[in-house]
Structure formats: structure tokens, C-alpha cells
């Protein structure tokens, strides 16, 4: 802590002269910025060696690149495949020349296809059902509204008893329908209010109640 007493304005705890700066010489300012992304090149690197050996390796490398690029192991992205299909060959699809018997069965393509299609189907049908249901409900609700307003209008004026009964019947039917629909919806678990609240008791003991008997204190 020898330098502390001297107090030369710098916030360092040692003598600046130790670093090789004479008295009164400018000390480099501290850097507060991150280093540049592309720093300037201080020394030019040596030129690359270019002899017969490296020339040959270079040619081999290029050859290998084109071969690999054209081989069926080079997987193209979906966009690239589309481009190729548009320009060259509409039924373009490469067969992978891979030794399938030495790989896990889950990688094989046939299985992949089946699984993919099945999944898609289930997903689609599920979605359709859900999309359709609200439409039906709307339609029925509208119908009901019309029926009600008609009913009111008829109440005001002179009305045909038969017709009123008929419309009442219809109304009841429609209401039943709606209730059924709504019940279905609820059964599918869209009613969050009934099961949303979790008091945290079930946390971490989903399937084993091993520590139930243990002391709680």
C-alpha cells in the first residue's frame, strides 16, 4: 500500500512509477467500451503455404465438396426442394441410400409416413368438431331469438293458440339442444372456473402418496 499516501489523483493503490511511467507522463485512459467487433489488424498474417501438396489437397477438397453436395446424403430444405421441383423435376424426391437394418426402427421412413398421416388426421378431425360446434350454437341461438320475438309480438296482438304452442315446443326443444351442447363443451374440460383453482396441496405428489402418513410438523 506504499502508493496510497502520495495521492497523485489516480485511484490506484500502488505507485504508478512501478508500471514504468515517469513523473508527469500521461497515463493511458481506462477503456470503458467493449472491444470492437472487427478489430484492426495489427500485424499482417504470413502468406499461406502453396506447394504441390496443398494444391492437391485443395483440388481434392473441391472435388469432394461437389460430390457431397450432389450426393443424396445432402438434405435439402423444404424451400430448396420446392425450387428444384419447380425448375427441374416435379416428382423430385431423393431416396436415402442408408443401411436401414443397422438403425433404430423409429427412423425408418415407412413408419414415419404412417405416423405422420395418422396424427394429421386426428388433429384435423378434432379441430373441425370444435370449430363447428359454436356455429351450431349461434345458429340455434339466433333461431331462438327470432322465435322469442315472434312470441312476444304474438302475445301483444291476437294470436293463434296452436301456433304459440308449436313455437313454445320448438323453444323448449331448442333450449334443450343448447343445454346439451353446452354440457358437452363443459365435459371436454373448457370450464376453467371449476378446476382452475389449485391450492397447492397436490404439488409434487402426483402419483405417489407415499409420504401421506408422515408427520406434518
Amino acid at each position: 500500500m506504499a502508493g496510497r499516501g502520495r495521492g497523485r489523483g489516480q485511484n490506484v493503490s500502488f505507485n504508478i512509477e512501478q508500471l514504468g511511467f515517469g513523473r508527469g507522463e500521461a497515463v493511458p485512459v481506462s477503456v470503458t467500451q467493449p472491444p470492437p467487433l472487427f478489430p484492426t489488424l495489427e500485424n499482417r498474417p504470413l502468406p499461406l503455404i502453396k506447394d504441390v501438396e496443398y494444391e492437391y489437397i485443395l483440388v481434392t477438397q473441391k472435388d469432394l465438396n461437389t460430390r457431397m453436395r450432389n450426393s443424396s446424403f445432402h438434405l435439402n430444405t423444404a424451400i430448396e426442394i420446392q425450387e428444384i421441383q419447380q425448375i427441374h423435376n416435379p416428382s423430385y424426391e431423393k431416396e436415402l441410400p442408408v443401411l436401414w437394418n443397422r438403425m433404430p426402427t423409429e427412423l425408418k421412413k415407412s413408419i414415419a409416413k404412417k405416423l405422420g398421416i395418422e396424427k394429421l388426421k386426428t388433429v384435423k378431425s378434432g379441430k373441425k368438431k370444435k370449430i363447428e360446434d359454436p356455429d351450431k350454437i349461434f345458429a340455434k341461438l339466433e333461431k331462438k331469438e327470432i322465435v322469442e320475438s315472434e312470441g312476444e309480438g304474438m302475445c301483444d296482438g291476437k294470436e293463434d293458440e296452436d301456433e304459440k304452442e308449436k313455437s313454445d315446443d320448438e323453444k323448449v326443444e331448442v333450449e334443450d339442444d343448447i343445454e346439451e351442447e353446452i354440457d358437452e363443451e363443459m365435459d371436454e374440460g373448457t370450464d376453467y372456473a371449476s378446476n382452475y383453482f389449485d391450492n397447492g396441496e397436490g404439488y409434487l405428489d402426483e402419483d405417489d402418496n407415499l409420504d401421506e402418513g408422515e408427520a406434518q410438523f
Binding site: 438434405l75 436415402l96 442408408v98 436401414w100 427412423l107 421412413k109 414415419a112 405416423l115
Partner: peptide, 10 residues
């Protein structure tokens, strides 16, 4: 998943 399978096979 099909792409991943191909990639793994390669």
C-alpha cells in the same frame, strides 16, 4: 419429424 429422421439417418 420426417426431416429430423432423415438427418439422423444420414
Amino acid at each position: 419429424i420426417a426431416e429430423v429422421k432423415k438427418a439422423l439417418a444420414v
